[in-house]
Every structure is written in structure tokens, then in C-alpha cells.
């Protein structure tokens, strides 16, 4: 498949240039954002020296702290619930036969593809039908439901890779479903569950579209706060805030990726 000659070398160089150009396109805006969060100037484009002032300004903003705390509580609870119920759903879909299984399996994938705005308004309608006031609980339920499919898919993929004979052997030796679940399935699935949990945490912490429709004035969260600030224009404090969140979510994604790569 690899013909040799001067033409290949030329295409090889072109390919490298193209690859680097795409990655630069992805990363330059973010890198500039990070660099400017340390720039000792409010509006200037030129570098005026290193400072941590913008981070200091951030840490003194009480409103921001409250929103950050809200987001953290929301992300932790939503991602843990999503990891729990998502794992149960993946196990049900993999091991059990039940009414509407095909439909449920289909819904998982449709939810992943559905534009966030559609999910957001569908949930808004659901919450208003049940007279659930918009605030922490509506956000929590919404975040669990949009994180869940990602956990299901991650866990299901790992389960498909497991040796089915293990379950049969355990069953032959007299293990009950719950024992098989606790002693065999869960430990083997752990990397995928943690990966799904981390991805859910990231999704929850970053979500704007769905939260926009199901949040109330009583419970402000960070992404919506960032959106409101970003609409007012570029500010060095906002650069600092975005830098912090980007670094946190990026590390979570990297860890999740590592866990998914581990072979069972």
C-alpha cells in the first residue's frame, strides 16, 4: 500500500504540515486565553509582564464562589448518580431480556445524537408538567439524564469485551446474580465506570445549553455565569476563570481516556 519515490516524500511533508495546522487551529485560541490570563494588562494585546492579579480578583468574587460551589455539588451528585444508574442500565441491556429492550437501547443512542436544545426544552416541558420548580432538583435530574447515555455506552463497550465464560463459570460454581455482580462484574468494569463518571462530571460542569432551560434564579451555576459574562466581552478575570475550568476538565478527559484504553 505504500509506493515509494519522491512523490511520497512530498505528500508526507504536506501531510505533516496539514496535521500540525489542524492541531494549531484547535489549540492556539486556548493557549492564548491561558497566556492572557497571566498578562499584567486589562485591554492591551501586548505582553506587559506576568501577574496573578486576575486570579486574585476571581477568588475575591463571592458570587462566583457560590456559583462554583453550586456547579461542583451539581456535577458531583449528577455524575455519581449517572455512573450508578448508567452501569445498571448497561448491565440490564447486556444481560437481561425485558419488555421494550430494543426501544431502550435505541433511546440511549438517540439521546446522544439529539441536539442539546431539544433535550433542554423537552425536559423543561416535563418539569412544568410535574410542577417541579426550576432550581437544584430540576438541574440535577436533567444532568443525570444527559450524562447517563455516555456512561451506558462506555460501560457497555467494556462489557462486550469481557470473556463471557467467567459469568458461566461463576454461575456453575453456585454464585448468585448479586454475587456475580459485586465480585466479578463491578471490579472488571471499574475502569469503564470511572471513565464514564469522569466524563459525566466534565459534561455536567460544562453544560450550557440544557441548563439554560432548566435552571432557576435561586440556583446559579458556573457555565451560565460564564455565558452571561462572555456576552459582555473579553475580560482578564474571565480568561482566568476559563483557564481554571479548562485545565480541570482537560485533566479529567485525559484520565478517562487512559482508563478506557486499558485492556480488560
Amino acid at each position: 500500500m505504500k509506493p515509494s519515490g519522491p512523490e511520497t516524500e512530498k505528500t508526507g511533508i504536506a501531510a505533516s504540515i496539514y496535521t500540525y495546522a489542524v492541531y494549531l487551529f484547535f489549540y492556539i485560541p486556548i493557549l492564548i486565553l491561558i497566556v492572557y490570563s497571566f498578562n499584567d494588562a486589562t485591554y492591551s494585546v501586548t505582553w506587559k509582564g506576568f501577574t496573578l492579579d486576575w486570579y486574585r480578583v476571581l477568588f475575591q468574587d463571592t458570587n462566583l464562589w457560590i456559583a462554583a460551589l453550586h456547579s461542583l455539588i451539581l456535577a458531583i451528585s449528577a455524575s455519581m448518580a449517572a455512573a450508578f444508574f448508567g452501569t445498571l442500565a448497561a448491565i440490564s441491556l447486556f444481560r437481561y431480556q425485558f419488555f421494550g429492550k430494543k426501544l431502550v437501547h435505541g433511546l440511549v443512542f438517540i439521546l446522544i445524537v439529539t441536539p442539546d436544545i431539544v433535550t433542554g426544552i423537552a425536559l423543561l416541558l416535563l418539569f412544568s408538567l410535574f410542577h417541579l420548580p426550576l432550581g437544584f432538583w430540576s438541574l440535577l435530574l436533567a444532568h443525570i439524564s444527559f450524562c447517563l447515555p455516555f456512561v451506558v455506552v462506555t460501560v457497555y463497550a467494556r462489557m462486550s469485551g469481557l470473556d463471557k465464560n467467567i459469568f458461566e463459570a461463576a454461575r456453575d460454581l453456585g454464585a448468585r446474580d448479586l454475587t456475580i455482580f459485586g465480585k466479578i462484574i463491578i471490579p472488571l468494569l471499574m475502569p469503564a465506570i470511572i471513565a464514564g463518571w469522569l466524563l459525566s462530571f466534565t459534561l455536567s460542569l460544562d453544560d450550557v445549553m440544557i441548563s439554560y432551560f432548566v435552571s432557576g434564579p435561586g440556583f446559579e451555576i458556573l457555565p451560565l455565569k460564564i455565558y452571561a459574562l462572555a456576552r459582555l466581552g473579553v475580560k482578564p478575570e474571565l480568561n482566568a476563570l476559563c483557564t481554571i475550568i479548562f485545565v480541570i476538565t482537560m485533566s479529567f478527559v485525559v484520565i478517562a481516556q487512559r482508563l478506557q484504553r486499558k485492556q480488560p
Binding site: P29, I32, D206, V208, P223, Y227, V253
Partner: peptide, 27 residues
């Protein structure tokens, strides 16, 4: 990995980063 990071991280933050890049007095 370098592709998956922009896939999962906040697109709001990345859009905001783009604003500061292309604004009239931007980089």
C-alpha cells in the same frame, strides 16, 4: 488524545477564546 480534548471540553469556553482572538483589537 489531542483530538478528544477539544471533543469533550466546554465549547462555550472555546467560543469565548475565539472571541478574544478575532476581535478588532485582538491578536
Amino acid at each position: 488524545l489531542l483530538l478528544i480534548i477539544p471533543f469533550w471540553t466546554s465549547s462555550l469556553i472555546r467560543s469565548y477564546a475565539m472571541v478574544s482572538l478575532i476581535k478588532t483589537k485582538g491578536i
